[in-house]
Structures are given as structure tokens and as C-alpha cells.
Simulated scan of single mutants.
Amino acid sequence: MTKIIKLTTVLTVLAGVVGCSSLTSDSEQTIQYQCGAAEVALNFTDAAATLHYKGSSTHLHQVVSASGARYNDGADPVTQYWGKGNEATMTWQGQELPTCVEKGTLPKHFTGRGNEPFWQVAVNPQHMTITTPDTEAIVDVSPAKVVSENPYEWRIDSATATQLVVIDTLCRDSMSGRLYPYQVDLHEDGNVYSGCGGDSEWLVQGVEWQLVKFGDHPLNTKAPTLSFLAGGQLTGFNGCNRYFGQYNLGGELAQIQLMGSTKMACPETASQLEREFSDAMQRVYQVFIDNNERLVLTTRGNRQLIFVEQQ
């Protein structure tokens, strides 16, 4: 996938007990994942793992799992990796990262949609549900096949003549302007319906965004930040205090609701930034990735908050 934002997380797995300094190449395996906006590399054996993330390292031990491969550090809050098939979940110090998908594969549950005419398709490992102006059907499907790389292109065949082609390239919705991770073409009854696919929230999750422009406010090293977490939760720094809240980017209009914050006293300039930033965040109705790979939040009243990925 052509990625807007990059964050490298490396899971280096060591054989045996703590203190082993090397591992033969025959016993290593590397899997590349995409976890929202974060890139993840996993080098592992079946024994233990060392997780390197944001400049920190945590040693993980394999734990009993009813399915998949599971490792954690036994701490509270926990850092954990749990892989199942081509997908994995990862928690860093109690914070769940977006669903991770092995590079070169599609998510197990995938949705595509398009406009004029309006159509939608929802795919799971067994079935594809199709809605077009002429069709409403559920058909059996075969596993996605890679038909080309760089970028990846997959074809999903059905029990009928219907096919879904998915290309691993960014796609902007023709009406809303929202950005999605995949371009999608549905071939059905001699018609080709083109649109976008995947989860638009995936493109903003997994990294921390730092505010670089907000009206005439001078922004220094304590500029506000924003992180979109899994499960519709968000957190960040508002210029004076840490805040938390909820978001929903799935509808025509984005919704952000701040639920609370810490209560530290700050200099008046920081307190003023806190008040105006918090008020603007509550009024956001559009979340947008621009052509310069910046996160742009637009409020009712057309104020803009512009963020870049924090390095």
C-alpha cells in the first residue's frame, strides 16, 4: 500500500532464555505487518520475543493460547503480541494498536463502496454481500489471489461470474473527499463499479499527530497532540493538560467528543491555547489527509487544525 505515514515498530525475537545473544538464521522468521499507519516487522521463533517500540524495548515470553501465537511481558499494563492467520493484535503498555494485517494480504473482513451509482460490497472469508442498483446478493467466494505486486493487486472470485479487484493504493472518495487505503473495482453482470475500500480510520490510527498550525497561535515544543486509538477512543495533549475522548469517522460527518482531562495549572498563554484547542476539537466535522500527508481537521466555522506525524 502506498502509505501516507510511516512508523516502524520492530519485534525482534530471541531464542531460549534471556541472555542468549544470537539466533541461527534457520530458526528465524520475519513477518511484515501494517497496523493502521504503523509499520510493524516481526522476527520470531516459538520461544521468546523482544519488542522494540518508540525507542524502548520489552522482553516478551510466549504464553498459552487457544489459537494463534501469543507473547506478552507479564507486566501491568501489559505489552502483548497475538497473531492469528494473516492478522495480529498488539498492545503496548496497555494501549491497543489498530488491527495489524500481514503485508501482501487483505483484511479478513473488507468493505468497498462507490458513488453514482451507489454500490457496496462486504467480504468475509466465506462470502461476499453485494448491493448495486440491480443486485442484492450473497455469494460464496474463494480466497483472494495476488495477481500483481508493487502495488499489490488482488482478485476475489465468486461462485458466480462476479469478481472483486482490490488495488493497494490510496483512494479518495469522489463525493466526500475522504481517503481510503484501497482502490476497488466490482465486476458484476458485465458492469464495472469503481470506488474505494477498507477503513478510512486505519490511515490515522497507530501514530501520534502534532499540531503545527492553528490560526495565529504560536506553537512551541509543547504543541497539542492527537492520537486516534482503536475502539473509537482518542487521547492527546491540549497545550496544558492530557485529554481523552471519543471519535467516529465512519459517517458523512466526523464526530469528536472530549470527555475529560487532567487539571494542571499552566501559564496564561498555555491555558488560552488549551481553551481554544479544546473548543475547536469539539466542533470538528471533517477529518482529512491532504496531499502533503498532513492531518487536517476542519471545524464548523471553517477553522482548521493542521497536524503532522510526530517523529
Rank of each mutant, 00 (worst) to 15 (best):
Lys6His: 15
Ser194Thr: 14
Gln205Cys: 12
Ala37Ser: 08
Val64Met: 11
Gln62Met: 03
Val17Asn: 11
Asn86Ala: 11
Ala144Trp: 01
Tyr152Glu: 00
Val207Thr: 12
Glu309Trp: 07
Gly94Arg: 07
His59Pro: 01
Gln282Ser: 15
His61Ser: 13
Arg303Met: 08
Gly231Phe: 12
Thr89Pro: 06
Thr135Val: 10
Leu97Asn: 03
Gln255Thr: 14
Met90Val: 14
His61Pro: 05
Ala144Arg: 04
Gln282Lys: 14
Leu170Tyr: 05
Gly177Pro: 03
Glu96Lys: 14
Ser27Lys: 00
Asp157Phe: 03
Ala254Arg: 04
Thr129Asn: 11
Asn124Arg: 01
Met264Phe: 10
Gly236Pro: 10
Gln310Pro: 03
Pro98Ile: 11
Leu97Asp: 07
Gln310Met: 09
Leu226Val: 09
Asp189Glu: 15
Leu229Trp: 06
Met281Trp: 15
Arg300Met: 07
Ala137Ser: 01
Ile289Val: 11
Gly85Ser: 01
Ala230Cys: 06
Cys171Met: 08
Arg70Ser: 05
Phe244Gln: 00
Glu149Phe: 04
Arg172Glu: 13
Asp157Cys: 02
Met175His: 09
Leu219Ser: 06
Ser261Tyr: 07
Pro117Gln: 12
Ile167Thr: 15
Thr131Pro: 00
Ser271Ala: 13
Glu274Asp: 11
Asp168Gly: 08
Asn43Trp: 02
Gly19Asp: 06
Pro133Asn: 03
Gly177Ala: 07
Gly301Arg: 06
Val284Met: 14
Glu39Arg: 12
Thr99Ser: 08
Pro107Ile: 10
Arg283Ser: 10
Gln120His: 03
Tyr180Met: 06
Thr299Trp: 06
Glu28Tyr: 00
